[in-house]
Design a binder for these strands. Sequence first.
RNA 1: GUCCCCAUCGUCUAGUCUGGCCAAGGACACCGCCCUUUCACGGCGGCGACCGGGGUUCAAAUCCCCGUGGGGACGCCA
Length: 470
Amino acid sequence: MTVRTRFAPSPTGFLHIGGVRTALFNYLFARRNGGEFILRIEDTDRARSTEESIDAIMDGLQWLGLDHDGEPIYQSKRFDIYKEHAEKLIEKGLAYRCWCTPDELQERREAALKAGRAPRYDKRCKAITDGPDKPYAVRFKVPEGKTTFNDLIKGSISIEHEEIEDLVILRSDGTTTYNLCVVVDDATQGITHIIRGDDHINNTPKQILLYRALGYPVPEFAHLPMILGSDKSRLSKRHGATSVTAYRDMGYLPEAVINYLARLGWSCGDQEIFSIAELVEKFTLESVGKSAGVFNPEKLIWLNHHYIKEANIEELKPLFLKHLKELGIDATADERVSTIMQTGQEKAQTMVMMATDALFYFTDTVTYDEKAKKKFLTPEKLTPITMLTERLEALEAFTLEAVEQAFNSVLDECELKLGKLAQPVRVALTGTKISPGIFETITAMGKERTIKRLNNAIATMKETTEKENI
RNA sequence: GUCCCCAUCGUCUAGUCUGGCCAAGGACACCGCCCUUUCACGGCGGCGACCGGGGUUCAAAUCCCCGUGGGGACGCCA
């Protein structure tokens, strides 16, 4: 039998980190086993489902490369099928009508909870054969006994049926509820392995009962542990960005996000770095851990940094340009971009940082950090900097080697250590004490701007000297 | 309140099924040193955990029981 898994989000908000991991594990399991991975939009809650959420889900999955097989399936288009199944259960005598109103039920639940009893439906309508001429819901008759299933991640799980209430399968407005819809979908869509968050463990026995009542084979279940925030509570907005697309905006690479999420709950010996191909090759449900994991932004950063360092500059270029644009710089036509990116590549933890750190290359003027200026743009540096400027200006090919040679010749003649000249030049070019290697920075800056900035620094130094003399 | 699930460094985890190779390994973070033209990168080193208590056994992180702690579920939401 071909393996078939699904990711079944409800489009009631953005695609969050937890959802992405569920999607990833479904994807990996399907691909690993040469099966299919389908996307099902569970939009039966018409009040809360939105078009934007659907777009956000698709957008996020596409960004991460978690491509699904076939067209997405919308539950909202399958109401008739669900209803047929509900009617079948009524016909078979496996369900009954219930005239209790949601308000009444809510009241009873609260009362039960207050009294320390289980807030469970008391089956009072089960015996009623012909009730009032009012709208009614339909409940599934949960039989006596207990259900045990073997979860592929958690192992054997069993629940006594007394713990399960007779759940509503058909609302009084004629629509079917979640548990019936999923079962009907998973059964009719040939889903063989249901991989989802472990917050669904409690739904599983109900669903197994429905599969049996409907005469469908029961699929395999694998419940993934939850992802927790740093305070060990369920991951939410309080813990910072939880929408995947927010990570894209912050300059994270999809490879990093995938790698991080895969290793949150799954492992393969001591290995930390995995390409998606490698994950597909090595993924098994057996090596998924059972306990919940805390989302650790630092490790994600580390991975992102790793993937930026490994990346091919040209492939990163559009992203870099995009983030630069966000910062107000359009460098599309600037031929220095690749070289500039190289200078920032090993330091940048995110693409946003790479863009931010490169900002100084593109500005028209340099604003000096006062401390840096005072410490490094000092009178005694006037001579070497002037010499350097002249020599750089004389260069025909402004290559790294040529720049380095010119720089070193000045050092030799002035009997200066590299650092003594590098820092003032750095301040002249960037305005700050921090930048990539000085030769790389000069080369990437380009001849024209380098000369301009050096001259500017010379002028500033002269100004300062004059002031001091007065 | 009831039920379900879980429990190794601060965090992600290896080891648990098949007890001895574990005076518990790796990674992130943190600290120190080295490299060095600044910030980083990198290299080396350090700090740091088997939740508690019983039991089984020659031997327990590993098996069993009881606590405790954390998470989840108890909707005419999904």
